[in-house]
Amino acid sequence: METAFLITILATAIRAGAPVIYAAVGEIFAERAGILNLGVEGMMLVGAVSGFIAAVQTGNPWVGVLVAMLAGGLLSLIHAFLTITLHADQVVSGLALTIFGIGLSSFLGQNYVGVHGPQFEAIHIPGLSDLPFLGPVLFQHDILVYLTFILIPASAYFIHKTRPGLHLRAVGEDPATADVMGVNVARIRYIYTFVGGVLAGLGGASLSLAYTPGWTEGMSGGRGWIAIALVIFAFWEPWRAMLGAYLFGGVQALQFNLQTIGITIPTYFLNMLPYLFTILVVVFATGERMRRHLGAPAALGLPYIRGER
């Protein structure tokens, strides 16, 4: 019985963590390039709704995923244009993007609330899914969850071990030097802001096409913001973002399953858990960062204008 409960919790944590992983890794890319994009919540919502609409229209969830990624990417380009080309304030522009995305998603989805659409089903990986304990925890998920298992090591490798990854870090840490080295700072920042938007859109699609299939207004429920918080917790490292996302997923899993083991707390308080947890996580991460002198990308949030500063 206890093992069964533990398996449920862990498997749910991994499932619930997936949408947040996409959004958080996307934000890691953008912030590594020096662009703080607070529009994640808006991009996730637009990704969720546009992906769902496309999937319903075509009957193919993969088309939904592509449309969601494109939608998230396009929205992020607004932020990129405002902050990189026009040097607008990144905080305000990101907030604007979230507010715009909330409105746009509810506008686009007006006729899709409660509609039943295609979704990604769980795939039991032959052999592995029969493993005791590990099987049900790791290998009985839908494809968008499995993709996060690849995304994390791939992005960590990209950031730390490849030449484009080096350029990415250089642009976020010291754009002036990167510029002198011949790196096109604006172009790199555009690219990774776009990547961030694409992944946020994908995170949204993994909500509306897999985790909680269907569209309801505001269905991301703050996950975009939680992703931004996890980036701080993760010190801009994909592996730690995954850890954070699973912790968040675990809190969600507990939220859903405490009742089943006879613990009755009003749902109102259970609903607060993920948000309180996020605050705690950011507080602890900030403390640890101070102790270990780990820094955010040095140029995070600052516009780069050649010859200034």
């Binding site: 607004i78 405002l82 305000v92 522009s93 907030l95 604007a96 993007l97 507010i99 715009f100 995305g101 909330i102 409105g103 746009l104 509810s106 506008f107 007006q110």
Partner: peptide, 14 residues
Amino acid sequence: PRSIADILQGLILF
């Protein structure tokens, strides 16, 4: 839809 007003808010800010 009423959400037009929200979209306009975002657009004006942009």
